[in-house]
Design a protein around this nucleic acid. Structure first.
Length: 271
DNA sequence: ATGGGCACCTGGCTGC
DNA sequence: TGCAGCCAGGTGCCCA
């Protein structure tokens, strides 16, 4: 599922419902996620106040009084705000019930998502400490992109999806940013000029920002905290458009495999 | 240091 | 109708 825009949309959607609330109960219905949910997590979370919610890369971080809860939506996860008594559905994994009578409900068919506790500084956590800077924060620009790709022989598309180089960009937005920058996904990362890196940094930011404005992209499973799909799919230029005409020049969009993932591009607009 | 490939899952679709 | 095969928004880990 979820790349940065979908996680950010979820984060903004749940924030007004969770900030300041007390955790009435953490009910784990199915602990089998990417890592099993720790058995003592419910006891630990219960009664703590939720001080705020944030995002780092594709992780959601709930700040509690005595630590953080770290959530990942994996490929197919979604987090919704529902009345506590709402009937459960298949693949509902846990409920973070609040004193307001509402619950944060996590559903994840493919079970690549996760829920874990962090004690101490989240930035020092093993899953977070090696992450690259945020693409929507100052400092992510052409110079940064140019510098970190100098010794990279991998394709630029794979470099964009490497969370040690750039965070938040997954399979959809990597293809889309490269289209908007006019750069072929198969180019060696180190072959990009400063100008191309500047263009690409701009389109990465642009495509993520615009997607957030449209509530993200829904292909199959993703829904926001309110249960609504994202509408950015209608704005996609290349992703899942193989064989269809390019929306800029009419040339047929091509699909190829890169690192076991599908990549889409326009052979005329991108070089 | 870098990069390739696999693993973890379920479900939906295609084609025989 | 059934079933095999393939594909899907992520990413940690092992190996070369």
């Amino acid at each position: 599922m979820p790349e940065l825009p979908e996680v950010e949309t979820t984060c903004r959607g749940i924030a007004p419902h969770v900030s300041g609330r007390l955790v009435a109960r953490l009910a784990v219905h199915n602990p089998r996620l990417r890592w099993p949910v720790a058995a003592d997590l419910p006891e630990w979370a219960q009664g703590q106040r939720i001080l705020g919610v944030g995002r780092r890369a594709k992780y959601l971080l709930l700040t509690l009084e005595r630590g953080h809860l770290m959530l990942h939506l994996g490929m197919s996860g979604s987090l919704r705000v529902l009345p506590v008594n709402t009937a459960r559905e298949t693949h509902d994994h846990f409920d973070l019930e609040m004193d307001s009578g509402w619950t944060l409900r996590f559903n994840d068919p493919r079970r690549f998502g996760s829920l874990a506790r962090i004690e101490g500084d989240p930035a020092a956590h093993p899953l977070l400490r090696e992450l690259a800077p945020e693409p929507l924060e100052p400092g992510f620009d052409g110079h940064y992109l140019h510098r970190i790709t100098r010794r990279r022989r991998v394709a630029i598309k794979q470099a964009l999806m490497n969370s040690r180089l750039v965070v938040g960009v997954g399979n959809i937005y990597a293809s889309e940013a490269l289209f908007r920058a006019g750069i072929r996904p198969g180019r060696a990362a180190r072959s990009l000029t400063v100008q191309e890196c500047a263009r690409l940094a701009r389109t990465v930011r642009q495509v993520l920002t615009t997607a957030i404005r449209h509530g993200g992209t829904t292909l199959r499973d993703y829904v926001s905290a309110e249960g609504k799909p994202g509408y950015f799919r209608q704005k996609l230029y290349v992703y899942e458009r193989a064989g269809q005409p390019c929306r800029r020049c009419g040339t047929l969009i091509r699909q190829r495999r890169q690192g076991q993932r599908s990549t889409y591009y326009c052979p005329n607009c991108q070089s």
